Simulated scan of single mutants.
Amino acid sequence: MRARLTGSAALAAAVLLAAGACGVAGAESSITAKDELVVGVNPDQPGVGLKARNGDYVGFDPDIARAVAKRLGGPAKKLRFKAVTSETRERMLKDGDVDMVVASYSITPDRKADVTFAGPYYVAHQDILVRATDAASVPDVRGLEGKSLCEVPGSVSFPRVKKERGVPVRPVRAAKGYGECFDLLAQKKVFAVSTDDLILAGQAARVAKGEAPGPELKIVNAPFSEEPYGIGVRKGDIDGCEKINKAITELYQQTAAGRDSEAVTLLKRWFGPAHLNTTSTVPQFEGCD
């Protein structure tokens, strides 16, 4: 005999079905269906993502976000930027405070449990930034032994040096992100900063151009990890992810006149003065899962 659902039982079943769908982006919540995209970017990483004095967000990541949005099609062309940090990125995506995160956001297995990642749009490498006068004493990551290294809450960079590489460094905590780390480096309150090379190159370029005070800075050029920068969207937004991947591919396509691709042009614009060797080919995508 087939059981019949009472009114209350039917309501309970509906609630359970809704709960099961919770956390998965439906068609109506995909970035492709939005009139305006709120994009999470870093406010304190020169060259990568920086909030200027006039309130605008400038750098490689905001420019990538603008270029991707133009290629998404439909109404998703209006952008509004909002500051995120290493600690707040996942939560702001989950809570709907931002629709997309382009913020030197390395794709990791742990993060993929909560976020759908498009890309990567660039593969950075963790390196070390020191004052130029100290560069000779740090040939590689082992040269940081016993020295003070800036630590940013929520970032994987410091644990990678101390725990994964087993280098006994002395932490100096910077609560407000890498911008504060660079201030500490200039003030000789920390010996080194170690994180993604684009972040380091952005600050080195800024000092080289006279846009930031402080002593000359040098990247050690001894990379010891790969940091695939992804564009984070709400978990389950496969359609949005696939369209972003198509846009990223187009960013790396060379122009008909043989000029640099748009991605390479942006890399040179923001990191050229730091003399960082950058990649000019589209990275291998990791899949929208």
Rank of each mutant, 00 (worst) to 15 (best):
L129D: 04
R170M: 06
G236L: 01
A65R: 03
V190I: 11
Q187K: 14
G7I: 13
N277W: 01
L16T: 03
C241L: 07
P153F: 04
C181K: 14
S86E: 02
D97M: 09
L11Y: 13
A19W: 12
K162F: 14
E286K: 07
G230C: 13
D95S: 14
Y57G: 01
I244V: 12
S280P: 01
K235H: 14
G143R: 03
D140A: 10
D114G: 06
V101K: 02
I31K: 01
D95P: 07
P171I: 08
F81L: 08
L72T: 11
Y252D: 01
D134Q: 04
I128K: 03
G236K: 03
P283R: 12
A21S: 14
P215H: 02
V156K: 15
E180Q: 15
V220P: 00
Y252S: 02
D260C: 02
V138L: 02
V141G: 06
P46S: 09
G26Y: 10
G59Q: 01
A212N: 09
K218V: 11
F191K: 06
Q187E: 15
V190E: 05
S225P: 06
F158C: 06
A25N: 07
I199D: 05
G179H: 04
R2A: 10
V193C: 07
E28P: 02
M1N: 12
S225W: 11
G49I: 00
K246D: 15
R259V: 03
Y178A: 03
P75L: 05
I31Q: 00
A103N: 09
A274V: 09
I128P: 05
P46H: 12
A118D: 05
G258R: 11
T116Y: 02
E227M: 14
Y57I: 11
S157T: 08
V101F: 06
R131C: 04
C22W: 14
D239A: 15
G119S: 03
A256C: 01
L16V: 11
I231Q: 02
R66S: 05
E36D: 00
V68D: 04
G146R: 07
I231A: 04
A9M: 04
I128A: 05
R269V: 07
L266F: 04
T6E: 07
C288V: 12
S261C: 10
G146V: 07
P62M: 10
Q284S: 15
T249Y: 03
L37Y: 01
G177S: 14
V152C: 08
S155N: 06
K147M: 12
S194W: 09
T195S: 07
I199C: 09
V141I: 15
V264K: 03
T6W: 08
V169L: 08
C288S: 07
Q254V: 12
H275E: 13
K268M: 07
A12E: 09
K163E: 15
P228A: 13
Q45H: 10
V152A: 12
